[in-house]
Amino acid sequence: MSGLLVQMLEGTVTSLKVFFLTLLFSLPLGFVVAKGKMTRVTIIRWITDLYIQIMRGTPLILQLIFVYFAPFYVFGVSYDRFTACIIAFVLNYSAYFAEIYRSGLQAIDQGQYEAAKVLGFTKAYTFFHIVLPQVIKNIFPSLGNEVINLVKDTALAQTIGVAELFRVAQTSASRQFSTFPIFVAGIFYFIMNYIVSRAFAIGEKKMNYYR
């Protein structure tokens, strides 16, 4: 029993690594993608749109396999599966975050930009102090949804052999001829997402001081 728990904690650490690394890269990258989709330069907008369509229109499980195996078939090189897993997750989640950011940016009233301009704020100051705080408040609930999805999606990393929580649970389940480890994994995911949703609820409440 304690052996199982240790294994599952190790798997959880891997899952959390996937989770945090994906957020670390895709949260900022999503902004770049959102900007790309909102640009006036047609070719950039077209490419970003295609990228988003592909990322949202195909299964993440397929993208994982593609990112891991494509370099091998095309260039004959193989690389670390964990790296491949992070790349696939970041590519996928950047597309989803981009769409969330875009909706948040478009909800900002043009008058906010105009007032900021007339008062003499620089573009950078306007973005970071006037626009961004309001965007974050606007998108916070949808962002929370997506982050909860990410916690569960980390289970897909096993597709290319990353020993995350769910794979560890499955392995010991088949070794013990018991579904018990799977249920334990379920509790682990539930706890992680409980923490995530509480954190987002607190954040939402904190930003509730204005409308």
Binding site: G111, E114, A115, V118, Q134
Partner: peptide, 12 residues
């Protein structure tokens, strides 16, 4: 300085 019809105060 400019005063707008819709005020455009910063809500946050």
């Amino acid at each position: 300085g400019l005063v707008f019809q819709q005020f455009n105060l910063f809500p946050h």
